[in-house]
């Protein structure tokens, strides 16, 4: 066992970890941030995507100790208390959510994509979310939503990012 501290969604957090604990377990079991989902557990599906130091990672493939001192954003860090993040709002408006299991990862991949490329083409959006598998939606309405979110963010939208 080891105690580590890290920043999660802008807050200093500390947790007891053991050596084989994954970042996914740290977030879900130790910090009770269950918005991050476990899909395949082997880095193929992207359901467990979180943002670490500004980059998306599969939190099932990152060991908890590797997150020591790092800045992490999970889906819980996207909305403020009374306002959805523009990306989340666009997902709802465009009907981009069906069962919802892939959506936390999708939203976080979209955030990093739009942080790096504020005016992506539809092909660039597809590339940006190609590490996130979705069985329900056929992706097209997710692409629509990210395009719409880009518009919100670029017109000075109400980003809290």
């Amino acid at each position: 066992m080891k105690e580590i501290s890290l920043r999660v969604n802008g807050e200093e957090r500390s947790a007891e970890i053991h050596e084989e604990m994954r970042l996914l377990d740290l977030l879900r079991d130790a910090l009770h941030l269950t918005g991050t989902k476990e899909g395949c557990g082997e880095g193929e599906c992207g359901a467990c995507t979180v943002i670490m130091e500004g980059k998306t990672v599969n939190s099932c493939m990152v060991m908890a100790f590797q997150a020591e001192g790092k800045e992490i954003i999970t889906i819980e860090g996207m909305a403020t208390k009374d306002k959805l993040h523009p990306i989340q709002r666009a997902f709802l408006e465009k009907g981009a959510v069906q069962c919802g299991f892939c959506i936390p990862g999708m939203v976080l991949s979209a955030k990093v994509l739009l942080d790096e490329n504020p005016i992506p083409t539809r092909d660039e959006i597809r590339e940006g979310i190609s590490g996130n598998l979705c069985r329900c939606t056929g992706y097209n309405k997710i692409v629509d939503a990210i395009e719409t979110a880009a518009g919100y963010l670029n017109t000075g939208g109400d980003s809290n990012a």
Partner: peptide, 17 residues
């Protein structure tokens, strides 16, 4: 029995419909 061998479409495989 894994997503590494059981391949499903990604956003890049999916055309506009």
């Amino acid at each position: 029995n894994r997503f590494s061998s059981y391949i499903i479409p990604t956003a890049l495989d999916m055309p506009e419909v």
